[in-house]
Nucleic acid binder design. Structure first.
Length: 549
RNA sequence: GGCUCCGUGGCCAAGUGGCUAAGGCAGUGGAUUGCAAAUCCACCAUCCCCGGUUCGAAUCCGGGCGGAGCCUCCA
């Protein structure tokens, strides 16, 4: 097995070999905690959570760090707007972020350092850069001098002289426009930390250099983030760290594609007052040929009546999902679709591709997932075991076994190899998922052929084969972090016990009708219940029902 | 203007030089079912356009058209 990754730095796929054999350090740029997270913020965490699972499965000892930026201009603005301390904003939004990660099954993070907990290290780092001649203090601020860095721009393929640089009043204190702030002097009323250059706060990029060094070392294996961070954020991280250390900062730079809003109805974060006002203003000002006009002429991807009837929202159809435009609503989305569906939705596309988000697409992905859930129920009927409670083989080598003459086991090994080969090649989760579908179909077929739902006790050998096959499905899906728990079974009428009892009564009446071959009555009940969203399934072992999707 | 990326069936999406172009959703036909549901089987694309390289291209090169991102805060 050889794992390869596409490295943004070299712009090609490279064989993965950790700096230290057997160990992997991963740093993922985390959130600036000033507003509630939206689905776009979950792309990176879900991908890297899955990546860590895969690397651990391959036998590596992995340390995964996700930083929390809890001091920043946007946090200050938010705190002022709400009239509360910045730290309170940060705490609230961090809690929100963590809750969303949990819902999506992101539970592999080892450390989540906060910038404010690393002030000492940050200040030390800046001091080192000044001492090395790579940074200079200027009027209470400290800037990185990009002209001192020979290979500045190598990650994003930009030349220094093409940089426009940050504007604002700070620009006048820079030596060259491309210089960026390592330390920002505090204005009156702003949160501040003492430093050799006076009270202030860190610039955006330095925390990542300081924290990654502190936790993962001067050179570590994988640095991740969204493609939008390549420049300036990661470019500046490299500049800082490599100027300071004179050794490579990161061996493999992995960047995930960004998410875009696909349709009005799927617009991330719902519509806040600000978004609606903004969209309306754009639409009003949008003469033909303007940006708004162009956006409005694009057909909605997941066209729905509601989307078509709300033209002012179409001005935001093509807007990318960004913190400045979408807010909130992720918890509701998770509540409606479930974390597993969203996770699956994110993983079925290659991590470097753009994902166009719409809730219709999430639901469609969920329809595919249901195939697995149906099968798990089937497995329970045969064996009495719950799929999600099965132990998953957690190491790649341990999953290999001699299939002997067992045809199903032979196919299990073949599918497993195909699945892992897809992941080995630049972490192709979408391709790997197709193997899962192929495999579940084969397992269903096996149950069909041997009628394992009918008197399974008398078919011990076949059931044993099935178990082995399902163990492989469990092993592989666990790498993707899917099917960690049984999906919450929707109940008719929610938690209303009365509705549940009435459904049960209808079921009994229908069973009676079927018993006396009164199919007219039985069908009337089934069709009426179906119209209400209750799906009836008659089986040899008895009738089951579920709230369909 | 500079720098990237993308364009595969109705929709989503793998594949990036060579067997019959994965898989999912939707659809159609069949098996099964009292009828359904679930499941299984079958059918459903020559890869935006033009030109080139090659024995051979969805896959490489050039041009065109269309779309996205970054260059300012952004996962």
């Amino acid at each position: 097995m050889t794992i390869r990754f596409y490295n943004t730095l070299s712009k090609q796929k490279e064989v993965f070999e950790p700096v230290t054999p057997g160990k992997v350090g991963i740093y993922l740029c985390g959130p600036t905690v000033y507003k509630p997270a939206h689905i776009g913020h979950m792309v990176g965490p879900v991908i890297f959570d899955t990546l860590k699972r895969f690397l651990v499965y391959n036998g590596y000892e992995v340390t995964w760090v996700v930083n929390i930026t809890d001091v920043d201009d946007k946090l200050i603005a938010q705190a002022n707007e709400r009239g509360i301390p910045m730290s309170q904003v940060a705490t609230e939004m961090t809690m929100d972020y963590l809750a969303n990660l949990k819902s999506l099954g992101v539970d592999q993070i080892d450390q989540m350092p906060r910038a404010t907990d690393y002030m000492k290290e940050i200040i030390a780092f800046i001091s080192e850069l000044i001492a090395g001649g790579y940074a200079y203090a200027s009027g209470g601020d400290v800037f990185f001098d990009v002209l001192k860095d020979d290979d500045y721009g190598k990650l994003s393929n930009r030349s220094v002289d093409s940089q426009q640089g940050e504007g604002g009043e700070a620009a006048s204190r820079k030596r060259s426009p491309g210089d960026f702030a390592l330390w920002k002097s505090a204005k009156a009323g702003e949160p501040a930390w003492d430093s050799p250059w006076g009270p202030g706060r860190p610039g955006w990029h330095i925390e990542c250099s300081a924290m990654s060094r502190g936790i993962l070392g001067k050179t570590f294996d994988i640095h991740g983030g969204g493609l939008d961070l390549v420049f300036p954020h990661h470019e500046n991280e490299i500049a800082q760290s490599e100027s300071c250390h004179h050794q490579p900062m990161v061996k493999y730079w992995l960047h995930n594609g960004l998410m875009r809003a696909g349709s009005a109805s799927g617009k991330v974060g719902g519509k806040s007052d600000r978004d609606t006002a903004n969209a309306g203003a754009q639409a009003a000002a949008g003469a033909p040929g303007t940006e708004a006009g162009t956006a409005a002429s694009t057909p909605p991807v997941g066209s729905t009546p509601s989307a078509a009837s709300v033209p002012e929202e179409q001005a935001t159809v093509d807007t990318k999902i960004s913190r400045s435009k979408g807010a909130g609503g992720l918890a509701d989305l998770i509540g409606r679709q479930g974390g597993d569906r969203l996770r699956f939705f994110l993983l079925r596309t290659h991590y470097r591709s753009t994902i166009v988000f719409s809730e219709e697409e999430v639901a469609e992905a969920g329809a595919g997932l249901d195939t697995f859930h149906r099968f798990f129920e089937r497995y329970t009927r045969v064996t009495g075991e719950q799929f999600h409670e099965l132990p998953a083989v957690s190491r790649r080598v341990a999953g290999e076994f001699d299939p002997g003459d067992d045809e199903l086991a032979k196919e299990a090994q073949a599918r497993r190899t195909a699945f892992l080969t897809k992941l080995d090649d630049d972490f192709n989760t979408g391709g790997a998922i197709s193997e899962l579908f192929d495999w579940v179909r084969a397992l269903n077929k096996f149950v069909d052929q041997h009628q394992l739902e009918d008197q399974p006790a008398s078919k011990a050998e076949r059931v044993a084969s099935l178990r082995r096959g399902v163990a492989t499905l469990r092993e592989l899906s666990a790498i993707l972090g899917l099917f960690r728990a049984a999906p919450p079974k929707a109940k008719a009428g929610g938690d209303d016990a009365l509705v549940g009892k009435l459904v049960q009564l209808l079921m009994e009446l229908r069973a009676d009708a079927r018993g006396r071959k009164d199919f007219a009555t039985a069908d009337k009940i089934r069709l009426a219940m179906g119209a209400m969203g209750v799906v009836i399934e008659d089986r040899k072992g008895g009738t089951e029902w579920r709230v369909g999707s």
